[in-house]
Design a protein around this nucleic acid. Sequence first.
DNA 1: CGTAAAATTGAGCTGTCTCAATCAATGTGG
DNA 2: CCACATTGATTGAGACAGCTCAATTTTACG
Lengths: 244, 244
Amino acid sequence: MNNSKTYSPPRSGCDSCILDGLGLCNLAIDCGRERPPKGGRANITQGEKTQNAKRTIFSQNEPVETVAILCDGWAASTLRISKGRKQILSFLLPGEMLTFRALFESGRYHSTEAITPVSYRVFDQSQFRNAMFASQNIFDRIMAGYSEERCRADQMIVDLGQRSATERIARLLLDIWTRLEKSGKVKDNSIAFPLRQTHIADATGLTNVYVGKVLTAFRNERLISITGRTLTMLDIDKLRRQAA
Amino acid sequence: MNNSKTYSPPRSGCDSCILDGLGLCNLAIDCGRERPPKGGRANITQGEKTQNAKRTIFSQNEPVETVAILCDGWAASTLRISKGRKQILSFLLPGEMLTFRALFESGRYHSTEAITPVSYRVFDQSQFRNAMFASQNIFDRIMAGYSEERCRADQMIVDLGQRSATERIARLLLDIWTRLEKSGKVKDNSIAFPLRQTHIADATGLTNVYVGKVLTAFRNERLISITGRTLTMLDIDKLRRQAA
DNA sequence: CGTAAAATTGAGCTGTCTCAATCAATGTGG
DNA sequence: CCACATTGATTGAGACAGCTCAATTTTACG
C-alpha cells in the first residue's frame, strides 16, 4: 500500500500551464523540504511532487524558499483564523501557480491545501527569480498571471462585501467554469468538479448548510446539475443573470 | 475662485513616502491627462497635481499610462457595480502609492477617489518601470509595498467572509491607526480621521446606518471618541479584543 | 445664516445562521 | 465483497445579525 506502486500523474495542467514554453520546468528541483506523503504514493523524479487529497501542501507561517506550480489536481489557498474559522482565498486549478503570492515575500501568511490528489513542481525561489529577471518574456508572463490573481482577489472583496449568497455562489461557479473553459476542459457541457459544499462555503463566507440550499434551488430551476464529481451547465445565461 | 490663489500643499506624506530617498520624484511629469480641477486650486509645478475632496482621481475602465503617489490627503480605491453598489477596496494614506495595481496592468478595473483634498505626483508608467528595473533597491522597495497591499487585500477577504460587523469595524480602525502610527502621525493619542460613516460602510460591506450603531456602541464603551475629524483612542486593548 | 450633508434613533423585516435529525455516498477493514 | 464507519448532503424549525425605511437632530460649509 505504501511505496509499492509508483504514482504516475497525467499532468493534465501542462496544456494550460502558465509556464508552458518558457523552459522553466528544467529548473524544477527537489529541494527536499516537504515531508514525504504518508500512506501512499512515493515522490518521484526531478522536483515533481505529489500530495494526497485534503492534505496541506504549504502551511501558514513557514518560511518561503520555493515557488511551485500545480501540474494536476485542484488546490486551495486558505487562511485560518481562531478556532475553525477558515477562509478560502482562491481555488487553484491545474496549470496555475501555487505560490504567486510567495514570489516576492519571505514569509507565508496563508496555507495551500490539496483538494484532490495533486502533483506539482517545485522551484528554488531565488533561481526562479533569476530566470524571471533574465527574460522579459518570462517576467511579463509571470507578472500578468500575478496581476490576474490580484484582480480576482479584488473581485472577491466586492463579492463578499456587496453580493448576496445566490450571487456569490453563481459567480464562483461561473468563474471556475470560465477558467476551465479557457484551458479546454469543458466536455459535453460538463466539467470535473471535485468541490464539496464546504469548500464553496469557505470560499463565499457562507455556511455549508445554506450553500446546500442555494445549490438545491439552482438545481430545481434547472440551471446546473451536480452528480458525482461532475458539474453540468444546463442554462448558463440564466445562471449569469443570477450572478447579477 | 478659480486660479486666483495657488494651492500650496504641505505634503505631509513625504516623511512616510514609500519612494523617499529613491530620487524618483524628479521623474514626476505632468502628462496632462487629467482635467483641471473645477472650482478651485490650480495645478502647479512639475507633476504635482491636486484634486478636491469627493472627486475622482482616476476612473474605472480608462487606459493606464501613469503611476502616481499620494503626497497629501486621503483617498480610496473603489470598485462600482450596478446601480449604486460600491465597494472600497482600500484606503490610501499620505505617502502611499495610488496605483500599485496599475504597475503591471494596462487597463484599470477600479477607480481612485479623493476623500479629502489631495495632492499627488504623477509618473509616466514606462519611465517609472525603467527606473524600477535599473535599481534592485527601488525594485525591492516597490515590490515590498505591492506585496503588503496584496496582503491587506487578503486580510480584507477574511474580514468580509468571516467576521462580524463589530470585528470588521474594529479592525478597520486599528489598521488605519497602525499605519498612521508607523509614519508618526499619532499625536496625543489621536489621529486626523476624515472618514464619514459611509466610507466605513463601503469598506466593510455594511450599511451606513449599522456602522453608526456600532460606532455609537464603541463610544458608549469608551473605546474611542470621534469628534470633528479627529479619532481619539481611549482603550486600544479593549478595542483589539473587539477585533477578535 | 441657510442649506445640504451626515449622524442618530426606532420599528419592523429578512437573509442567513444554528442546531438537529435524517439520509446518501464514500471509503475501510475483515 | 459485504458490513460498518465516516464524511457529505438534505431538510426543517427557530433565532438573530444586519438591513430598510423614515423621521429627527446635528454638523458642516458656502
